[in-house]
Design a protein around this nucleic acid. Structure first.
Lengths: 348, 348
DNA sequence: TTGAAAGCGCTAACAC
DNA sequence: GTGTTAGCGCTTTCAA
């Protein structure tokens, strides 16, 4: 049993309540007594028991940074790890600026079946959460709707009294990206999608569709390749596509993530084609890796770190005043680099 | 005030202790009663108060994943982010396999001056920690020595009753890497180091030195460039070096991190030289990025994810039996790729 | 300015 | 099998 408030009181010759006062910044205490208590505590190596404190007065604000699906795929090639990393980074940076105590937890879909969102929070004494990677098929997606404990979701739109969201306008961003390829003269695009259960996948799909509509081009189903945000899958499917169609199919690859664009790049090169001379490739996210590929990838920069930061900031506001709950649409930036070019006449 | 054990007891028509029994998997309880209690709890939306539980019986094991210096540099180019990411990944994966509850915290050197290690743990109810990124100049580095709460450090060797370490044999690994360059015929190497306060920097330096010694080559101080693990700094200093020495200096760049090797690669290319024809470049870590550079980087793979996993596993063993505290040296693998080649006769 | 005492919600003896 | 009760360490009235 560690040293408690009682021990400190005994050594300082005061009662427990006086010790408590000394430790909680109350003014109605003799500075001399306070000093004596602090010294006694120091000597004993005392530090307050957080459980006891929480039990008798639930003041402390604990914030949970909850990542859903962190361990989903465990091979390096498979993941868009940078994305999650910078989200965390932004969130922790904001927490430091605002002096909030945040703890990160990894949960998966299976875990969500065992514990409800509120139970999860209660057990960890969380007063609010910032949630990444929540899928629309996840249990918490539905539970959040009428949860008491505030939550801010990143990239998953959830309605709810105490829920806020930060995201970008995926529809608009993807429409712009598609239009960018059209403007370069490309008419047949191969759309490489993310996981179907991801909300962003559907939104970006809608954006592409709108661009087709606005240009009176035909959106053909056979030009959609369903993937999973993964590099290797995009690589594999692109290779199959190229071996079959060669230069008689799409002239540009429109990817819903940078990692997939990297996979496409790899496939195109391995098939003996050049980017952007033979094919254009665009990604989405704006991860660092896109500046190290050859050629450098054209992409939409989501400013991921900022997203994490703003998510945490929004949460802290909601924690203070629940009516602050809202959806924040952050800006995105098209980064035009070297993987895109005017459609080659020789191309299909 | 949320619903408590009392409310459940009242609704189920039993006493609080019976409810407690029902929730803690005791056998001496009537299955029928138990069922009734569980239903009452369900109806009331009850979930146990973790603080109260911790207060009356300190069973729950909470593990902290503590990252020191997570927010140190906040520009994307600057960081070796992948390294931290995969360490986290491995740690959380192990936690899932072992059914441990882990929470990640970000602390920096400044924070360590405000709270001692034991205070930090006490306030968060941590029974053990896995610590990344601890510098030898950090306060916790010293406090760990005689801390009561077990800790496993990654890549920082700390002696202490309740402290374990996981790392690789940095001296040996770097000696091998240096020898590999010697074997290719390189005689003059430029050593690009990490941050001086990082323990690994000194260890790898020693490894390089041993290789020089074993070959009876002269280790010259002017062939050491002190950097900070950062891509941009390595890039900058390499560029300066090349502009001055051109091909009359080192023929190979020996980097203490992959990110720096990537920066060197960029500098070499920008100066109009080819890798590996004009210069060889090697990195260290084995991050994913090294397989996407052109040419692919030769490096020492630390198997970072595994390191995180083993760190967590060691911690869980120490938590059960403190005498398990030890230092684990994990294997490393030299990945020979395309950024290294036989020393060109034309080279300096 | 300080102390006494009543809880906060739960667990774990100990009775029955 | 179940109830009674004494804490766990702390905060917070209420008195003094």
């Amino acid at each position: 049993m560690a040293v408690s408030i009682k021990d400190v009181g005994r050594l300082a010759g005061v009662s427990v309540s006086t010790v408590s006062r000394a430790f909680n910044g109350y003014s109605d205490i003799n500075p001399v007594t306070k000093q004596r208590i602090l010294e006694a505590a120091e000597a004993l190596g005392y530090s307050p028991n957080i459980s006891a404190r929480n039990l008798s007065s639930k003041k402390k604000q604990n914030i949970g940074l909850v990542i859903s699906g962190f361990l989903q795929e465990n091979t390096a090639q498979a993941r868009n790890d940078e994305f999650e990393f910078w989200l965390m980074h932004g969130a922790y940076r904001c927490a430091r600026d605002l002096d909030l105590d945040v703890a990160m937890y990894s949960i998966d879909s299976e875990f969500q079946k065992k514990k409800t969102y509120e139970q999860f929070c209660a057990e960890r004494n969380l007063s609010g959460t910032l949630m990444f990677g929540l899928k629309i098929t996840d249990d918490y997606f539905h539970q959040l709707h009428d949860a008491e404990i505030p939550c801010v979701t990143v990239d998953t739109l959830v309605r709810g009294r105490n829920v806020g969201c930060v995201t970008i306008d995926n529809v608009l961003a993807f429409q712009e990206l598609t239009q960018y390829l059209f403007d370069l003269g490309h008419r047949e695009l191969l759309l490489i999608t993310g996981r179907k259960t991801a909300a962003v996948t559907m939104e970006r799909m809608a954006g592409a569709y709108e661009a087709y509509l606005a240009n009176n081009f035909e959106f053909r189903k056979e030009n959609v390749v369903y993937c999973d945000f993964r590099e290797d899958e995009a690589y594999r499917k692109t290779k199959i596509y190229l071996q079959k169609k060669q230069k008689n199919g799409a002239t540009a690859f429109l990817c819903m993530s940078d990692m997939m664009a990297v996979g496409v790049l790899r496939a195109v090169k391995e098939c003996g084609y050049r980017v952007p001379e033979d094919f254009s490739v665009v990604g989405f996210d704006g991860i660092l890796l896109t500046t190290y590929t050859e050629p450098k990838l054209t992409t939409v920069d989501q400013q991921i770190e900022q997203k994490g930061y703003e998510g945490m900031r929004l949460l802290s506001r909601i924690l203070e005043r629940p009516e602050e709950a809202r959806c924040l649409y952050l800006p995105h930036v098209l980064k035009e680099r070297q993987s895109t070019g005017q459609k080659n006449e020789g191309g299909g």
